[in-house]
């Protein structure tokens, strides 16, 4: 990335920009494309799934409860007779709203915080870094549990709590990237031009630390899905009657001792595929920026 000011015309070169090089290596990465395929599949299911599933995922049919997989119900039915296949297909909707929003919140908050402490250093950096360390010493799920119990369960709470618990991790990444950048000549030049601190941080430095932020964000998205699914499984995330996967497992796993495996297996595999898909994408993005 060049750090030229808008007033200075950029040199006209035939060289491909670094961004198109990144895009090029992404499109050639099998890892990235496989992951993207899986994630896109679930996004399409979330958006349009309800139009092509055979049954209404929310309508029960007690007479046909706990029916094993058959031609009629491909994945069987759950304990109140809802079609498991239909529920699995549309079950990605809530997690694919909550987890990305939480990640976006974490990225915005974490980037701002990381820029601030990386740029100003000194006592601010020391204090904030200690607080962040304390924050990261405890598993996110447990912090989230405490906050959600205190604030009450809702999608907004889950988004805010997960977003804010991930912000320190992103802040740490941004901070170390900023520490390297702030010693470079273009920052010194901005200071000589008497640019304000905010301008230097957000206009000069920020564009140059986008790659690590993007990598960290995709990695965090995987963890956000992990966290939302886990919270939903424990009853503190997405609430009934949503066909959410974690929630479905939570309401059906009590009966697997009776051999009703189909009520949980497909939801578990769905979560597994989505998490692995997002991680493959993250791996691809990481590779594309670090080649």
């Amino acid at each position: 990335m060049s750090a030229t000011d808008a007033s200075i015309p950029a040199p006209d070169t035939a060289r491909r920009s670094p961004w198109s090089e990144v895009l090029y290596s992404l499109l050639r990465s099998g890892t990235f494309l496989t992951g993207l395929g899986i994630v896109l599949f679930w996004i399409i299911c979330a958006l349009f799934g309800e139009h092509f599933v055979p049954y209404d995922p929310l309508v029960d049919d007690i007479i046909n409860a706990l029916a094993p997989p058959s031609a009629e119900h491909w994945f069987g039915t759950d304990q109140i007779g809802r079609d498991v296949f239909s529920r699995v297909i549309v079950g990605s909707r809530d997690i694919l709203t909550v987890a990305p929003l939480a990640t976006i919140l974490a990225t915005i908050a974490g980037t701002a915080l990381g820029l601030l402490i990386g740029y100003f250093r000194g006592i601010v950096d020391d204090i904030v870094s200690r607080v962040l360390e304390a924050f990261m010493a405890i598993p996110v799920v447990i912090i989230a549990l405490l906050a959600i119990v205190a604030l009450g369960t809702s999608k907004i709470t889950v988004i805010v709590v997960i977003g804010l618990s991930f912000a320190p991790i992103i802040a740490r990444t941004v901070r170390s990237a900023v520490l390297a950048e702030r010693e470079l000549d273009y920052v010194a030049a901005a200071k000589l031009r008497h640019e304000g601190a905010l301008h230097t941080m957000f206009v000069e430095i920020l564009p140059n630390v986008i790659p690590p932020i993007l990598v960290e964000t995709t990695v965090r998205l995987g963890y956000a899905i992990f966290a939302v699914a886990t919270l939903s499984f424990m009853g503190f995330g997405i609430q009934p009657p949503s066909p959410d996967w974690g929630l479905s497992i939570s309401s059906n796993y009590g009966m697997i001792g009776g051999g009703f495996w189909w009520t949980v297996l497909f939801d578990a595999l769905a979560i597994a595929s989505l998490v692995i898909g997002v991680n493959l994408v993250a791996d691809g993005v990481h590779g594309a920026f670090n080649d």
Binding site: T230, F233, I249, W261, V264, I271, V275, I276, N279
Partner: peptide
């Protein structure tokens, strides 16, 4: 791959295989 999966997901699958 197994590291990134939520514990309850691997847990459920293991329960199904070894327990059920």
């Amino acid at each position: 791959s197994v590291t990134v999966l939520p514990e309850f997901v691997t847990g459920i699958i293991l329960i199904l295989i070894f327990g059920v």
